Simulated scan of single mutants.
Amino acid sequence: MRAVWLREFGDPEVLVPGPAPDPVPGPGQVLIEVAHTNLTFVETMFRATGFGPFPAAPPLIPGNGVGGVIAAVGADVEPDLVGRRVVSSTGGSGGYAERVVVDRGAPIEVPDGLPLDEAVAVLADGRTATMLVHAARLRRGERVLVEAAAGGVGSLLTQLATAAGAQVVAAAGGGRKVAVLRDRGLDPVVDYRQPGWTERVRAATGGVDMVFDGVGGQLARDAFDLLDPGGRMLSFGLASGAWADLPGDLAAARGVTLLRPSAGPAELRAFTEQALAEAAAGRLRPMIGQRFPLEQAADAHAAIESRATIGKTLLDIH
């Protein structure tokens, strides 16, 4: 089968297309014929440095989230699963390929009416966004700042927070991303690459009650300063390359709660199913900003690292 190999850590060019043996499902496993593969920023960090909760010993086929059709099953697995449309985590590797084998309990069936590419776009990001909004316990009328609002998770967070009755301020880096967010009906939208962006947020809202931090670094600290006493902040990403550095004693002195959500496998599966159901109902719209064929996985990683991407990036396999 066609696949993309990571044989050493480094720049995007270390992702090299090449043949791989066809996987065969063993007892308790299923074989997925992959249509689309989900790409994440964390995968680019793993490719570059080995960072992240993935297998850490190349050579390997990267890729942790796929969508496709179950093509075969192993022993002790119901044969009527063949032909079902599913999304699935791969356990950390194997997704940049035409076929992948996973345990029977890993795939989640895609609801009728939801295209496979949209299902893959909400597999990881929708699960994350749903979990974060659940942890934030948003209340109607709260002022919510979403950083990296043009990203995969951020674009879904803006929708979920709006549906919860919050007043959403969307923050993104660069004029193109700001324009896309405005086209999707968000207001106010600020460009955090421009000087004085926090003053524009304060002028529009007077301050905020909740920050979803998808950037980290200094920008997270600037966003923290916008929080009123009693506010909450939840860091979920490090697009800047560094996590937010917010000491607990500083937060306590400001009367701000730093949220650190966690969830077990059963809860994560439930959040994924909830996100898929919302997408199937048309209430959650993933933003697929760019797509690459399998053989151009290196180009996809380079685009993500350049901060030029909008929404979700997919590899189209079939």
Rank of each mutant, 00 (worst) to 15 (best):
A300V: 00
G255H: 10
R291V: 15
S89C: 01
L39C: 06
R232N: 07
A220I: 13
E305P: 05
A166Q: 09
V110T: 03
G152Q: 08
P293H: 11
A275F: 04
A300N: 01
L116V: 09
G141I: 05
A242N: 13
S88H: 02
D76W: 07
N64C: 10
L284A: 01
Q296L: 07
R232F: 05
R140Y: 01
R85S: 10
R85N: 03
E8Y: 06
A223Q: 06
Y192M: 09
D249W: 13
T128H: 00
A281L: 02
A302N: 03
A129I: 05
G105W: 03
V153R: 01
R307C: 00
E98S: 13
E109D: 06
R182V: 13
L6R: 06
P247C: 09
L31P: 11
A121L: 03
A277Q: 08
G175L: 14
L145I: 07
V110A: 01
G92E: 03
A170S: 14
G282N: 05
G50E: 14
F51N: 13
S240G: 11
G92H: 04
V66E: 13
V77H: 09
T90Y: 02
P195I: 09
A270D: 03
V87F: 05
T44Y: 03
S89T: 11
A106L: 07
V100F: 11
G83Q: 05
V82P: 03
P79T: 12
L114V: 04
L186T: 13
L276D: 01
L284W: 00
G214S: 15
E147Y: 13
P58C: 09
L284R: 03
I310E: 02
R47D: 06
P25M: 12
M1S: 14
A172N: 11
L219M: 14
T130S: 04
E8S: 15
